[in-house]
Design a protein around this nucleic acid. Structure first.
Lengths: 153, 153
DNA sequence: TTACTTGCAAAGCCTTTGCAGTAAA
DNA sequence: TTTACTGCAAAGGCTTTGCAAGTAA
């Protein structure tokens, strides 16, 4: 209940931030762009372009898959969203939010976010300074999500 | 000097392990497979199929790109190598060695390995047990490698 | 009205696959 | 000799692009 209210609030904030970002970047605020962004901000899984397309067709039946691709590329270029690292052939996307890490299910490939503040308590090996300048560190945890665990028992 | 000797030794070991693995898996030990594996084991960067193909053509001029793809898929299926996570459209590969993490340069996309034993000193957030069963955790550090740092100064 | 966006269709890039010849065991 | 593997060529999946029509500002 409260969670839902908080989530709604956060979506409203994200959408407002999105509208400002569009203005700042000189991007026109189209129906399609708003739906694509909202889809990414609300569902918070890490959908592929194809998945976003299928979901949005329910709201905008005439939208085309290339618009989804083009829009995602535009958003990423302007730093509104991120392309996520995967071993799959299809790209996955997420809205840019507070630093976080990923849980990846080996079976269904679903990606879930998590926070891990105490990670910063461990310093990176010193040798890394020779490699170059570090900007960010991300953890990917692999395993089997609880939904998939039932499948083979 | 010593490093080189150690590296040679390690390559010899990897190759022997590879030959055994082929036998165990019932895979024929072909000229092409040996070169592809050796290329991955020696250079230890994280090449794309295309890069491996270009390098090996110097040794086996008649090799085809599809053989490289097919061989990499076969190796990965038998657990001899790993496909590495990236945001790029081309897949990258590495031989399966001791647990390690990746440094990724935002500019040249080169991937470098590093060890980080003390990572295990920090336990994952407890909430993760709700998500499912954790099997492995990998860190990807982003930044600019020293070779690329000079480019914009 | 003007310039940016979209939908359509076609092309592009990376990867996979069917087939017949080749080579490892 | 037998069966897996390779090279060739063609197809496949995901993504990008050119163009004319449509739409936000």
């Amino acid at each position: 209940m409260l969670d839902k209210k908080v989530a709604m609030e956060s979506i409203r904030e994200k959408r407002a931030a999105f509208e400002n970002a569009c203005r700042d970047a000189g991007l026109r605020l189209t129906h399609q762009r708003l739906e694509i962004f909202t889809e990414l901000a609300v569902v918070a899984d890490h959908p592929t372009a194809e998945t976003i397309y299928e979901r949005i067709r329910k709201k905008i039946p005439t939208i085309s898959l290339d618009t989804v691709y083009r829009t995602l590329a535009t958003f990423a270029r302007h730093g509104l969203i991120n392309k996520v690292e995967t071993v799959e052939s299809q790209a996955r996307f997420e809205v840019k939010i507070m630093r976080h890490h990923h849980l990846t299910c080996r079976k269904c490939n679903k990606i879930t976010d998590f926070q891990w503040e105490s990670l910063d308590d461990v310093s990176l090996p010193v040798e890394i300074s020779r490699w170059g300048r570090v900007e960010n560190k991300n953890v990917i945890v692999y395993g089997i999500c609880s939904e998939c665990m039932g499948d083979d028992i």
